[in-house]
């Protein structure tokens, strides 16, 4: 899993621009003996034959896209007005480095110097729509030689080991899920299994909806990064989950009440195999599970997540052991027949 992770994280792929990350994944699975297909929306779906068939169609899902930014307007002086693709806390944007996906033009999100802020402005952060990106252009014409309205950008690639046993990078949400799936596809599987690498999760799970419709899975496992609130002073009851405590199993979030039977199976499997796991203890956030659960005739869903600090910023921080726990649990659970 780790061998794919850096390369995947460093690829620029905000929602709607997943071509490069998808090609990298195809490169890594094409010799695994799987069948794969890219649908009109850009989702990459994979079927891998196992030793046995099972009655239920089991699907493992991760999303390829990351949060990013899109150019809305370039003003007379060459400053770029923009907004976020997906949910980004405005306080992780101001002053940051970004890179445009097509032209690889670098930019800086302008931050009005503290000295020039009015007493009213001090301590507050303007909305992203009131910020601008500086690419060093002095006019719209100069800027337009490099970028145009609608161009997309992401945080600058910065994958690095951090602290003790941690990784810090942009886009670990959900390139880590992609890396786990690629790892699974490249192993010999007990049962026939479907996999999907989806587009556009960050802007409303549009990819998953389409995949759910087309594949009609019976059982879906969503591999995701989920917010860890285990920072200083947060009471245990509000942490959601904690780094280093293992794979996260959710009971419910804002989009899904997870299938009890799958949850129990996951707990049982984890305990049997000695895989570290934890419950997500707040009802917050959401992921593609909701779409799988409610599309067409519905499906049984479960999210297996890795706890992530500072998700949707340039500094997603995840634990290598937690990611491995997610991978181990996903693999172990897929050895079950689900009949």
């Amino acid at each position: 899993m780790l061998k794919y992770l850096k390369r995947y994280c460093d690829i620029l792929g905000p929602s709607g621009m997943e071509d490069e990350i998808r090609n990298a994944i195809i490169e890594d699975i094409k010799d695994s003996g799987c069948e794969y297909e890219v649908d009109p929306m850009g989702n990459l779906t994979v079927f891998k034959k196992g030793k046995k068939r099972r009655d239920n169609k089991v699907l493992f899902s991760a999303h390829m896209d990351e949060v990013g930014f899109m150019v809305k307007y370039i003003d007379d002086d060459g400053y770029v007005l923009f907004n976020s693709i997906g949910g980004v806390d405005r306080r992780v944007v101001s002053g940051r480095r970004i890179i445009f996906c097509e032209s690889n033009t670098h930019g800086v999100v302008a931050s009005k110097a503290v000295h020039m802020q009015t007493p009213e402005e001090r301590g507050k952060c303007e909305q992203i729509s009131d910020m601008h990106i500086d690419i060093g252009a002095r006019s719209r014409a100069e800027a337009n030689e490099h970028i145009m309205i609608g161009d997309c950008a992401t945080f600058v690639p910065n994958y690095t080991e951090f602290g003790e046993g941690l990784i810090r990078s942009k886009a670990l949400d959900d390139r880590f899920g992609c890396a786990v799936l690629v790892d699974m596809i490249n192993q010999d599987l007990e049962y026939d299994t479907y996999f999907t690498f989806n587009v556009c999760e960050e802007v409303g799970c549009n990819g998953a909806r389409e995949v759910a419709h087309r594949l009609r899975p019976d059982i879906v496992f969503v591999l995701e990064a989920t917010t860890a609130g285990d920072t200083l002073g947060t009471p245990k009851s509000k942490r959601a989950c904690a780094l280093g405590e293992g794979a996260v199993l959710s009971i419910a979030d804002r989009s899904t009440i997870y299938n009890k039977e799958l949850l129990e199976t996951a707990v049982e499997t984890a305990n049997e195999k000695g895989i570290k796991w934890q419950y997500k203890n707040v009802v917050a956030g959401g992921n593609e599970s909701g779409e799988y659960q409610r599309t067409a005739s519905g499906a049984k869903v479960l999210a297996i997540s890795a706890p992530a600090r500072y998700i949707h910023s340039e500094s997603n921080v995840l634990s290598v052991n937690d990611m491995q726990s997610v991978a181990d649990l996903a693999f172990a659970i897929n050895e079950r027949s689900f009949n």
């Binding site: 917050a284 998700i311 910023s313």
Partner: peptide, 21 residues
């Protein structure tokens, strides 16, 4: 290396962005 903590969304208060940091 260090990273400044960013408050997770589920811990945001209703008027999160109106408050002075």
């Amino acid at each position: 290396k260090g990273v400044f903590v960013s408050k997770p969304p589920h811990l945001h208060e209703a008027n999160e962005y109106d408050q002075k940091m």
